[in-house]
Every structure is written in structure tokens, then in C-alpha cells.
């Protein structure tokens, strides 16, 4: 007689599952996006040559604005969700977790709005 195996139970897809997949998809996207950014800004240009004029010149091109908007959206959301994962490894209380999620969402929204305002508004003279 053959051993009976249980039929696989389809896992319920919660937003946590979606977040898990998005962390990995954004990771693949972020490797080229972030690496190109740091190679240009930190290695080719260097912090000693970055000033308001440089930012204005870069953002004169809509392509770089879209590039930086992509960095802002993907990198920061990936980072804040990563921080949530780290915190939830050590904090298990239901209510505490809910408080943390609300606070982190507020933090993400606030910083993202500031960054978005700059990418859209550009350098103010």
C-alpha cells in the first residue's frame, strides 16, 4: 500500500505575501538602479563636485528626473518595508506591530512626499 500524501493546501495570499514578492522584484530592479547612481555620483563626479548647479544641470533632463523618481519610489519603500521586517522579527505583540506599521507608513509617506516635491519642483533659485 502506498503512503497517502496530503493534497497541497493553497496558501492564502495576504498583503504580506505581496510584500514578500515585491521585496525581491524591487531588489532585482534596484541593483542596476542604485549601482549606476552611486558609480556616477560617488565615483565619477564625487561629493566635492556636487552642488546646487550640478543638481540643476542634472535635473534639466527629464530622463534623470524620472530616474531619480524611480530611485525614490523603489529604494525607500524597499528600505522601510525591510525595516518593518527587521522590527517584526523582534516584536511580536499584535498591537505593538500595528503601531509600528502605522508609524513606518507615516514615516515613508512623509519622506517620500518631501523627495517628490524636490524631484518635481527642482532647484529653487
Amino acid at each position: 500500500m502506498t503512503a497517502q500524501t496530503a493534497a497541497p493546501v493553497p496558501a492564502r495570499r495576504s498583503w504580506l505575501t505581496v510584500a514578500w514578492v515585491l521585496m525581491r522584484l524591487s531588489a532585482i530592479l534596484l541593483v542596476p538602479l542604485v549601482w549606476v547612481h552611486v558609480v556616477i555620483q560617488d565615483l565619477l563626479i564625487g561629493v566635492h563636485h556636487i552642488d546646487l548647479d550640478y543638481v540643476a544641470m542634472r535635473w534639466a533632463s527629464i530622463g534623470w528626473r524620472i530616474y531619480d523618481a524611480g530611485l525614490l519610489c523603489f529604494a525607500f519603500a524597499h528600505g522601510v518595508n525591510g525595516l518593518r521586517q527587521v522590527l517584526e522579527d523582534y516584536i511580536h505583540g499584535r498591537r505593538t506591530r500595528r503601531v509600528i506599521r502605522v508609524l513606518l507608513f507615516g514615516f515613508w509617506l512623509f519622506i517620500t512626499m518631501l523627495g517628490a516635491a524636490a524631484v518635481i519642483g527642482g532647484v529653487r533659485s
Binding site: 543638481v55 540643476a56 519622506i111 517620500t112 518631501l114 523627495g115 524636490a118 527642482g122 532647484v123
Partner: peptide, 8 residues
């Protein structure tokens, strides 16, 4: 992100 937002 905060320092970059200062350009605006």
C-alpha cells in the same frame, strides 16, 4: 532624501 529635498 531629506538633504536632496532642500534644493527645493
Amino acid at each position: 532624501i531629506l538633504d536632496t529635498s532642500l534644493v527645493y
